[in-house]
Amino acid sequence: MDKEQIYAVVKKYILENLEDLQDSDIDPQKSMKDYGANSLDIIEVVSCSMRELKIKIPRSELADIKTIDELADKFLANMSAEANQ
């Protein structure tokens, strides 16, 4: 799975969980908070995305992530590490 596909999964759950948001509105260089997400929304998006991608990353490692793009990068790095094991 490449980064574009990972990004598509994350975006799907952002659209599912946040109100009044269109696909074209989402800029990966922004934070989910910029689109009105609260911490519970973010947990939901991250949990659903990880479940679909079949990965699990400790929350403590996600605390410093600022943008949607960084989140997709983190998921990609984890999937690549898993694949190489």
Partner: peptide
């Protein structure tokens, strides 16, 4: 879960165990 000590209670609230009477498989 290789780095087991990096996990915390923040990581198991979401439960996707197919058996609803069981906690998450890795919990």
């Amino acid at each position: 879960m290789d780095e087991i000590l990096n996990y915390s209670l923040a990581d198991f609230q979401y439960n996707d165990n197919p058996d609803v009477l069981e906690p998450p498989e890795d919990f």
